[in-house]
């Protein structure tokens, strides 16, 4: 076997071709095995857990998909609403994190200043810090911000105002809303975006900016007119990576949200496992899993080169 990675232009001998094909097919089988398992399950009309292993669908039934789309949970929330919540949350967090991160990444990549090292460590540490570690204070912090309707129909925004009698009807609780969860998710999305963008900015040659400086552009003009346009592809990738991460998030959402109308797709999927798993039809869980995974899978495959480039360039220079 030639393991050098490149054969220098000559044809591959047939026996070697066949040998490598067998190896590749074996790897393919191991890769596809769990995926086919869940796909097959999703096309089944049986609701029980399969007692035998099936990897190729014997029947193609869309019953499970239909049921999931019709009535995804026991709560009165429709599939389009779940989709909307998931989309708004992931896209919102992705965009906000990106907007805040890009200027910080620029500062770390292009300027030399006193506190640079210290500030960079401060920004990057939350990357290694699990979101669970900060969830309690964030929960308490946001739980304080509530909008209440008082007896005299006036509106009080806590903690800045309170109703005269100290009570009031709860209208809005930041913690128990998609806004609050979004803010909590931004805490982990932001450092990742800075890291990812900084790595990419490091790879953009400085000559362009130096040329712009000679032409009289100041740092701000360079940033907006040269750096941002050049970083566009990476901005898209960073946004997408944030989007996937939050599209699949269920720990924070589950910790913060209590109203069924705020539920997301990932929460619904999570709800189908764990302690209620035995009451959940397996084909529906599988169908939901495919629905949650599919959009992400398609975009990931389309963008894989840029995504991987982004992650590794982000790490090259600390």
């Amino acid at each position: 076997m030639n393991t050098s990675g490149q054969t220098s232009g000559r044809n591959l001998p047939l026996w070697r071709q066949l040998l490598l094909q067998i190896v590749c097919l074996a790897i393919l089988a191991s890769v596809m095995f769990p995926i086919m398992y869940i796909v097959t399950l999703s096309f089944s009309s049986k609701t029980t857990r399969p007692s035998q292993l099936e990897l190729i669908p014997k029947e193609i039934s869309f019953v499970a998909y239909q049921q999931v789309l019709d009535r995804p949970t026991a709560n009165p929330i429709t599939f389009p609403e779940l989709l909307k919540n998931s989309f708004l949350l992931s896209a919102g967090v992705g965009v906000v994190a990106l907007l805040i991160a890009v200027s910080a990444a620029y500062a770390f990549s292009r300027f030399k200043f006193k506190l640079r090292e210290v500030l960079m460590v401060l920004v990057f540490i939350p990357l290694l810090m699990p979101a669970v570690g900060l969830s309690t204070p964030l929960y308490l912090l946001m739980n304080q911000i509530q909008v209440k309707e008082c007896k005299d129909k006036s509106i009080a925004i806590q903690p800045f105002m309170t109703c005269e009698d100290g009570k009031g009807k709860l209208k809005f609780n930041l913690r128990d809303s998609l806004w609050g969860v979004g803010i909590a998710m931004t805490a982990s999305a932001l450092p990742f975006a800075v890291w990812n963008l900084k790595g990419y900015l490091d790879t953009i040659p400085k000559e362009l900016e130096e040329a712009a400086a000679i032409d009289g552009a100041d740092a701000n003009q360079t940033f907006w007119q040269i750096v941002i346009p050049l970083a566009m592809p990476q901005l898209a990738v960073t946004f997408f990576l944030g989007f996937i991460g939050h599209w699949q998030e269920f720990v924070l959402t589950w910790l913060f949200l209590s109203q069924p109308e705020d539920y997301t797709l990932a929460m619904t999927l999570y709800n189908m496992t764990g302690q209620y798993a035995n009451s959940v039809p397996w084909n529906r869980f599988a169908a939901m899993a495919v629905i949650v995974a599919l959009p992400v899978a398609v975009v990931y495959i389309a963008l894989q080169k840029q995504i991987v480039g982004g992650i590794t360039s982000g790490a090259v220079k600390g």
């Binding site: 910080a104 770390f108 964030l138």
Partner: peptide, 22 residues
């Protein structure tokens, strides 16, 4: 001062949602 200005938005946000909780 410029680099600090570029860092300001990120650190304002992180101040509330990362460093305060910490």
């Amino acid at each position: 001062l410029l680099p600090y200005l570029y860092l300001l938005p990120a650190f304002l946000v992180m101040g509330v949602i990362t460093f305060y909780p910490l």
